Amino acid sequence: MQAQWHHVGISVADLERALHFYRDLLGFEVVWDHPQRGGPEMAKVVGLEDVKAHMVMLKGYGTHIELFDYLSPKGKAVGSGRQCDYGLIHFALTVTGLQELYDRLVAEGVEFNCPPQVLRPGVLATYMKDPEGVTIELVEYSEGA
């Protein structure tokens, strides 16, 4: 069996706000946009009855992100205190020019835990939140790190 990483799925309350963040601020590209997906097969796969969602697949940074705006059933916020809770706590994007990206995103109102920090020689990183409170690590590796 062969397997490889494909995407992260994120449920969002405001699809336009999420698209602005991922597409316009971070530079992800829209691969496809399905305004209303559902049906019995999807209901079985996601484990929800009478499911309908506006779904958008984005690509960038060597990965994909699938945004779900559930039309039925509607989702609820899980809160911002999820960093140490069990389950997915963050995903990371490798970038170049981290300080410049950080400065641009801060100017756009993006919430960061701190400015970029040297974690060890050759590794600069910081955590930020997307509009739904999902933690994203931005990390820059110097040559040889």
Score class of each variant (00 low, 15 high):
G75S: 04
F91N: 13
C84K: 04
S80A: 09
H90C: 06
L88H: 12
L98A: 01
R82W: 09
F91S: 13
I89P: 01
Y86L: 14
G97E: 09
A77H: 04
D85R: 09
L101T: 01
R82Y: 11
Q83M: 13
L93Y: 05
G81V: 10
L101I: 04
Q83K: 11
L98K: 01
V78H: 00
V78Q: 03
L93S: 08
R82H: 13
L93I: 07
D85C: 10
R82G: 14
G97A: 08
K76N: 06
L101C: 03
G81S: 14
C84N: 03
K76S: 11
V78G: 04
K74P: 07
T94H: 12
Q99R: 15
G81F: 09
K76V: 12
Y102R: 00
D85I: 04
S80L: 14
G81I: 10
H90W: 05
D85M: 08
G79D: 03
L101P: 00
L101N: 00
L98G: 01
V78P: 00
G81R: 12
Q99C: 11
R104L: 00
L88G: 13
G87P: 07
T94P: 05
C84S: 05
Y102S: 06
V95C: 11
G75K: 00
F91T: 13
I89V: 14
L98F: 01
H90A: 07
Q99E: 15
V95H: 02
R104T: 06
Y102W: 05
C84E: 02
L98T: 05
L101G: 02
R82A: 12
V95W: 05
S80C: 01
L93H: 08
Q99V: 14
A77S: 11
Q99A: 12
G97Y: 06
K74D: 00
L101K: 04
G87Y: 08
D103C: 03
H90E: 11
L88E: 12
R82F: 11
A92E: 06
Q99M: 10
Q99K: 13
G75C: 01
A77L: 01
G79W: 05
G79R: 07
C84T: 12
L101M: 08
